[in-house]
């Protein structure tokens, strides 16, 4: 038999079973606005910046073809492009960091 789990609610520790979804939940990480992620799986059509370029918030950075749409991924911040992790033609799953701006 598995040890019964404990769940802390309002500083009381309840003996109970915890669900898999709860046990495996993603812990919160603060957002990093400089990092541009693929918000959807797709194919990189074009990277519109080069390493070292200066960009402004709202500039298009990557064109990602997904769901029959050429999606324009924009920069959330102004800064310098410090890394580019993809090239045109790359197929990327969801959640991959494509370009980093700082």
């Amino acid at each position: 038999m598995k040890e019964p789990d404990k769940l802390n609610i309002d500083q009381t520790h309840y003996t109970t079973r915890v669900s898999r979804r709860w046990a495996e939940r993603k812990h919160y990480t603060p957002p990093e606005p400089g990092k541009i992620y693929s918000f959807i799986p797709g194919t990189v059509v074009e990277v519109l910046v080069s390493q070292g370029d200066t960009v402004s918030a709202g500039d298009d950075i990557v064109i990602l073809d997904a769901m029959k749409m050429k999606n324009r991924l924009k920069s959330h911040i102004s800064g310098k492009v410090i890394s580019i992790n993809v090239s045109p033609g790359d197929r990327v799953p969801k959640g991959v960091m494509l370009v980093e701006i700082a």
């Binding site: 769940l7 309840y14 109970t16 079973r17 915890v18 669900s19 709860w22």
Partner: peptide, 8 residues
């Protein structure tokens, strides 16, 4: 159900 997730 107190047996699962303390019934929350």
């Amino acid at each position: 159900q107190p047996m699962e997730m303390a019934g929350v």
